[in-house]
Amino acid sequence: MAVNKAQSGRTLAEVHQPELERALAGQGLWIDLGAATVRVQSDSVDFAAQLQSVYDQFPFEKQGIWADMHVRIRRPRGVRRWVRPQVRFQCDGQRPFEPFPADSPLPLFEWGCNWLIGRRLNDLLLLHAGAVEKSGLALLLPALPGSGKSTLTAALSQRGWRLLSDEFGAFDPESGAFRALLKPIALKNQSIDVMRRFAPEAVFGPEFPKTRKGTVAHLAPPREAVVRRYECARPGAVILPKWVANSPTRFEALAENVVFAALAFNAFNYSLLGAVGFQAVLRLVRQCPAWQLVYSDLDEALATIESVWSEVTERNGAPVQ
């Protein structure tokens, strides 16, 4: 990806909201996620405020030379502007989704961008997994919805692990490394309060009740993760998290075939990549030790991961930090 020019040097947090609104209403805002760039335009005042709350550490870029996705978050014209107002997601002239309520443009933007990334970034193998980095090695957290993946990814990102992505384990088959696709972490329902208690200093966006997934709130990526979003990470380990209420922490090694299935059959574009995807998953399975982590207590879960990480770094010849 080309590096966008015309950086103002300011972050979104340092920009007054009216200036951000003008940028969004004009040529748009370029949001560089690491492995991809989104250009977004919008006439929604709510969107400007919500975007600013969770992309606060991202550079304020009003002009770029390349964007992988050109997105518009628009208020419809006509009666819908006044009666039960809505916002629409548009990309390349298409409207692939139903509109959202006008006060919820951020969940629509996040959902739509994830959808686009999953369909367009086919130079990368996009595993459905949380991804964090430590000591130059990536820890992958693949899981089905409701497994506690986002909560665990969020917790790690607040305890010294660099967030790469909450949604995409973006593996570059050519370089053999993971790249960042850095976006806010979408927390749902009770996970929101769990993380508020776990990391009171963390930055949250507004809560959106009554979405298709219940109440959703977004956790802003930490500043270090944003600054280091071009840094790749070598494959380190795979942990399949599973949150079970009141369960003691259990940590068990996984067989290669289980890991293969968890990565390949849960990826966004595995089939599309054909033999390249097959070889990439095989490489990860062979390279990464893997465990299942059943947990109910976040602190215990993190301590368990930390305790095994020295083994992972030694195995990979990376320094233990």
């Binding site: 067989a255 290669e256 075939n257 289980v258 890991v259 293969f260 299935a261 390949a264 059959f265 595995y270 089939s271 599309l272 054909g274 033999a275 097959f278 070889q279 095989l282 399975v285």
Partner: peptide, 24 residues
């Protein structure tokens, strides 16, 4: 031609270039 078969744990993963799919 082009079928890939590799051991993964106790089973084998096989990729078919015809279907583009992988089976265990």
């Amino acid at each position: 031609a082009g079928t890939l078969v590799e051991p993964v744990g106790d089973v084998w993963a096989a990729f078919s270039p015809t279907t583009g799919e992988t089976v265990l």
